[in-house]
């Protein structure tokens, strides 16, 4: 797969439509994820960014449209083929999704033990290398409940790269972290992508952090792609909506007030 710009594509989404019950989440979305780059999917909360990652990972099925990952149509794969493809995808959940009954070391070793027959000594080396990469080799004996939010996310990242995947999907990697942890995660995403030759998809609504590390940004709103381009290009966009989002203005095309009846009439109605 090749995009119009001549880049090699890892993920290609065409005409994607997805609805939950009567609520339309995506309506004809086209997205290209080039290999080796960090691509960001941005948008306000509730626009289905996490849903998009689940669709790419084949955990949900779209009503219409195709999602192709590394040349394979995710929704036409059989159970076994889908699981084989997932071994080459890493996903970092917002909560970390660490297994609470295993310590940090065993959590990172989990995918290795499940999918390989490596001897325990080699698993140990691999786990320590992955933990070293996220700076938590010293925390290997801690349980997930003892970790701070930022540490849990870094452990989850070490686990996501344990099988040396071709791509990683980050679900809101910056949300709820203190500035130092946030900085650490920003730097990790950037460094890992370069060092391991990964393709990264970052789903986020933190404009500053995401723009600083991404090569290309898609902005989603109400089920559609409302803007896309390189971070610099999006900053001076003509679209008022995208400008409001990128600069975090409280009022604009997205109104400050949720639709409601007229304020004065509403207040006076209580007196009747």
């Amino acid at each position: 797969m090749v995009s119009q710009g001549g880049e090699s594509l890892l993920v290609q989404i065409r005409g994607l439509s997805f609805a939950r019950g009567s609520r339309v989440i995506f309506d004809g979305v086209d997205i290209d994820i080039p290999r080796g780059k960090v691509t960001a999917i941005m948008g306000p909360s509730g626009t289905g960014k996490t849903t998009l990652l689940k669709l790419i990972g084949g955990q949900l099925r779209p009503q219409r449209g195709t999602i192709t990952v590394d040349g394979q149509d995710v929704n036409k794969l059989r159970h076994r083929e889908l699981y084989a493809l997932r071994k080459r995808m890493g996903m970092l959940f917002q909560s970390g999704a660490l297994l609470t009954d295993l310590n940090v070391y065993d959590n990172v070793a989990f995918p290795l033990r499940e999918h390989t027959r490596l001897p325990e000594s080699m698993i140990r080396d691999l786990v320590l290398m992955k933990l070293q990469a996220v700076g938590l080799r010293g925390a290997r004996d801690m349980m997930p409940s003892e970790l701070s939010g930022g540490m849990a996310r870094r452990v989850a990242l070490a686990r996501a790269i344990a099988l040396d995947p071709m791509m990683i999907m980050y679900d809101e990697p910056f949300t709820g972290l203190d500035p130092i942890s946030k900085g650490a995660v920003v730097q990790l995403i950037h460094r890992l992508n370069a060092a391991l030759g990964l393709t990264s998809i970052v789903v986020s609504h933190d404009v500053q952090e995401t723009a600083s590390i991404s090569d290309y940004i898609y902005v989603l709103s109400e089920g559609k792609v409302v803007g896309h381009g390189k971070p610099e290009a999006l900053r001076d966009t003509d679209s008022e909506w995208v400008r409001q989002f990128m600069q975090g203005l409280p009022d604009g095309p997205v109104p400050f007030h949720y639709p409601a009846a007229d304020y004065v009439t509403d207040l006076l109605a209580g007196n009747g």
């Binding site: 689940k54 990972g57 955990q59 699981y83 084989a84 997932r86 071994k87 995808m89 890493g90 996903m91 959940f93 917002q94 909560s95 999704a97 660490l98 297994l99 609470t100 989990f110 995918p111 499940e114 999918h115 989850a156 686990r159 099988l163």
Partner: peptide, 21 residues
């Protein structure tokens, strides 16, 4: 609780079938 904390979903994305495991 494993479902609520996304542990089952996380396993699926690690290509480990939570029903088997």
């Amino acid at each position: 609780l494993m479902k609520a904390t996304e542990q089952l979903s996380g396993m699926e994305m690690m290509a480990v079938d939570p029903i088997d495991r």
